[in-house]
Nucleic acid binder design. Structure first.
Lengths: 345, 345
DNA sequence: CTGAAAGCGCTTACAG
DNA sequence: CTGAAAGCGCTTACAG
């Protein structure tokens, strides 16, 4: 496939036609005007004429080979990047990545070939094509720590989107959940809430742990009460009963999906949000669904995370990353007010 | 920029590590097992081990120069692929493209480089980079016909998503709007509608023309009446007056956005949809917004278009595309019933 | 001011 | 069975 075009124009042919050397053609094309490489105006024009006549364009492969870099940044997503279900998750990140790539003038290589039929995508499986890119941005809620460590060993330039525990040489751009979660707890306490209920996601990832830890420590600092449960099923009624039993006046819910379902369901039971119960979500959906109400929530700067990840990657690749502290970035989250957090009844 | 990775792995280094010649490494990689190029099983394994340890992948530029393909399919979008505004448009297409790429085991190169600050993205400005990919899928509502023709001349393998007029050698995968639009007109006529109003988008593209032409010809065939206007502003009230004046009982609206705004606005005027006026949209939003009502509409098979485009591209690249008819594909649209089309009052 | 030459990393025919 | 060598089309120091 992609057999070379037999009559493809080359600099050599241009040179023949213009009566100069091939190198002179390259020089003209480079647009360089150092004193050391000055071409006569006349020669330059003759070459330019031929180039125009033949509508010649340099072979990118040869250019890249000679230039030693191919201006390709990789993007590896642990799940499909585009499908409907996850698109809300990846879309803003990818938008940021795309914008930064445009800014840097690089192309983006999406590693779609890495998919394995069963199980999650693997970064380093046999025949990994990672090295085709000069460096790579990694996206996904959950990443294989061993793989990341391996990448570090290999000295392959990469940046994870999302904070990563484990090997501390892993560069990342994450969201500062802790500060925002703490703020939300303080806000609730200031509104008179003393009994909290926390519904966590049923999986462990840095991002979920961060929120949970920040919650716990804020609760402790405020000297209030909290119950933490895992939202591993959809039986809102059961939760609601436990919340009533716990006499909680506010519920923090990690997932915005759960938060919406929760609000809708309890309202069907005649419970009013936020009059009877306040709801806060720590989720990161960029595009809040059309819900009857706007749930008070934390908003991760997803687009910026994508942009910053690419910029950091670039700095790492060019050796301008500086100390380790500057290769691990946490971006501030915003808090969307909403109308689901009110005074404790 | 993108200074060369100093320690980029090469076949030469692999060869050193494995104690063989560089050519032997290339041979192992090629997977060739001709009698003329037989390597000892032992050598082969030693090389493979080193390749695995270093997770080496051949430099795509060098491969290309040497005349080989790279398992990279390009994706060129005329607008930003991810940003919020256009993500509804591209998301399903890209999802389809991604799925097909996974199926074929190829990676996807998004041409984000050399974006022009002003004006639309140009294909041929990045023309050189285009060659980095073995072939390319083109996405966008409006494409430059001259550029496409140029690509044909260059014998660069590509497929446009969306029907393309002009040079008939341009391969595409489009949506068969005509049939669906005709069906919708028939359906309306069957419900007793005799006076139609048509609101077209304010730009010319094959996809808008297709729908308009199909509408006109269906109207003619049914021997009913229609007014066609361009929706180049947002003054729904003005349209509504003209619709009333025209005594139309049904409005066909190309853009789903317009259709939603239209429905919402006339209902504020006390006009009931569909009792007083039926509304049909010929738009292609994959993710219908939360509207009070579900507008009867045409649904383009966006995901399938992405998938089919990649498959067709692959066939073209491998020389299995067959005759021209098979390089121009129109996929059937679905009709989503909705509840905005009812009997003429 | 211009041209000959080396080298980028690969593939592949060809000589040992 | 393996290795040395040419060549893909370019860039860029370097020698004239």
């Amino acid at each position: 496939m992609t057999s070379p075009n037999p009559r493809r124009m080359t600099q050599r042919r241009i040179a023949e036609l213009a009566g100069v050397s091939q190198a002179a053609v390259s020089l003209v094309l480079s647009g360089r005007t150092d004193t050391t490489t000055r071409l006569s105006e006349e020669t330059r024009n003759r070459v330019l004429d031929v180039i125009r006549d033949t509508s010649y364009a340099a072979d990118p492969a040869a250019r890249m080979l000679a230039g030693k870099s191919n201006n390709i940044l990789g993007v590896f997503t642990y799940e499909s990047a585009f499908p409907a279900e996850s698109s809300d998750f990846y879309a803003p990140l990818l938008a940021g990545v795309e914008a930064a790539a445009e800014e840097l003038g690089t192309d983006l290589l999406m590693f779609t070939s890495a998919r394995s039929a069963e199980g999650p995508r693997k970064l380093l499986r046999e025949g990994s094509r990672l090295r085709v890119a000069d460096g790579c941005v990694l996206l996904g809620r959950q990443m294989d720590g061993a793989e990341l460590a391996r990448l570090v060993e290999m000295e392959y330039p990469f940046v994870a989107v999302g904070r990563r525990d484990g090997d501390e040489r892993i560069p990342y751009v994450g969201a500062d959940y802790a500060t925002a979660v703490t703020d939300l707890v303080f806000r609730a306490v200031a509104l008179g809430h003393e009994r909290f209920f926390y519904l966590r996601l049923p999986f462990e990832a840095e991002s979920t742990r961060d929120r949970r830890d920040a919650f716990s420590s804020a609760i402790e600092r405020c000297d209030v009460h909290a119950v933490i449960e895992t939202a591993d099923d959809n039986d809102v009624h059961a939760y609601w009963r436990r919340i009533v039993n716990a006499q909680s006046t506010v519920v923090f819910i990690e997932s915005p999906d759960h938060a919406e379902r929760f609000s809708a369901t309890v309202e069907e039971l005649g419970v009013s949000v936020p009059r009877d119960i306040s709801v806060v979500t720590l989720g990161e959906h960029a595009r809040p669904r059309s819900m009857g109400r706007a749930i008070t929530r934390l908003v991760a700067p997803r687009r910026e995370m994508g942009t910053e990840a690419v910029r950091l990657l670039f700095r790492i690749m060019t050796g301008n990353a500086g100390a380790r502290e500057t290769t691990r970035v946490l971006l501030p989250c915003a808090i969307a007010d909403g109308d689901s957090l009110a005074s404790a009844r």
